[in-house]
Amino acid sequence: MITVSVCMIVKNESQVLARCLDSLRTIWDELIIVDTGSTDDTMEIARRYTDKVYEFAWTGDFSEARNFAIDHATCDYIYSADADEILEGENVKAFEALKLCLDPAVDVVQMYYGNQLDQGTVYNFDRELRAKLFKRLKPIRFKDPIHEIPDIDPIVIDSDIVITHRPTSMHAGRDLETFRKIISGGNKLSSRLQKFLDRELYLQGSVEDYESFAGYLKGVTCDPERTADEVIEACTLLVRYHRMRGEIPQMFDNVIKVMAHECNSEVCDELGAYYLSLGDYDNAAIWFFNAAYEVTPILGIKAGKETALLGLIDVYKALGNEEMVTEYTNRLKED
């Protein structure tokens, strides 16, 4: 039977921490909680479950905090948990069974991370396999200052265990601030982190957020070391940015750049919104229809269905066409 150190980094998680820890009680042999600057009673709650509670001065780098936590672990394996996730029902039993039978040659066990579309997270699928359980004596360090992942080349197995992600709020403001810090420090985002920034900005960004990243995104579109996909994503975000600012020539300049490669639902939605604002309902309907049925989304899955169908409903409401309003309302319910 293997032993497991549950390692967590937390900050102001008083609303959800006990819920998480209660769900994990039977799987840990050691619980390590690292607080990165809570101002609520998170640490008090943590100390009800373990005496291994540590403080870590926040540096803006999630990997540094994760690595500090795992440095205190002493068990065979490390389970890296977040406070807004829980283990439920049969999944608890499956984890307990895994502890009994896991081959010690295995370095990493992947588990399903579920309920990801709740609260509008940056993911476009409701569940995915993630590396969650790691052998401690295998040299493991987390990398990337945000959306951190373990930097290892391991023997990996997949399990059927599902961890439920149940956030009570979004962390978009925190995450975007971290991205600003990385970029302002002169650091270039990896392709992986660039994708996270693009999704975060598209799904959760405010007008002010777009303003703060516009210069950086324009730089991405001119960077010869960036991939075509990275350039297209940046141009797509700039289409929205310039439409919101009423800078229509600049908007169309980025539309053309996207279409020279391959159009996507997000750009079609922006064109639909633009023509709808002009009262040009025919063109608005064409672009919203294209978003829903002719192209695919690249940043937000809802761009290809919900956003586009809502746009079509608005168009046909403006035209007084109740038959088409009903048609697209029913399609929206089906999706």
Rank of each mutant, 00 (worst) to 15 (best):
K302W: 06
P297H: 00
F56E: 13
D269K: 06
E266G: 05
R25Y: 08
Q194T: 05
E30M: 07
Y328P: 04
V4L: 15
D314N: 07
S159L: 05
P167A: 00
N290W: 04
D82M: 03
L332S: 13
L176S: 00
I86G: 06
N187F: 07
I152S: 10
S212T: 01
L238Y: 03
D22R: 12
G173Y: 08
G215K: 09
N67M: 11
S23F: 08
A285L: 06
S184R: 13
T227E: 12
R130G: 00
D223N: 05
R226L: 06
D335P: 01
F213W: 08
S265V: 02
N91W: 05
Y274P: 12
E327C: 07
E322C: 01
Y113E: 08
T121H: 08
S169W: 12
P145K: 10
I45W: 03
V295N: 10
R141G: 05
N254M: 13
T227S: 15
D229F: 03
V325G: 09
G300C: 13
T296F: 09
M244Y: 04
P249S: 02
E306W: 02
N254Y: 14
D198R: 00
L176G: 05
V315I: 08
R331M: 11
E327F: 11
G185F: 04
K52L: 09
A57G: 09
S63F: 04
A308I: 01
E262A: 10
V267E: 10
S14M: 03
A105M: 12
G89L: 15
R174G: 13
D282T: 02
Y113F: 07
R174T: 14
H171F: 15
I27N: 07
P167E: 01
A69L: 07
F125E: 14
G300L: 09
I256E: 15
D175C: 09
L189D: 06
Q110P: 02
K195D: 15
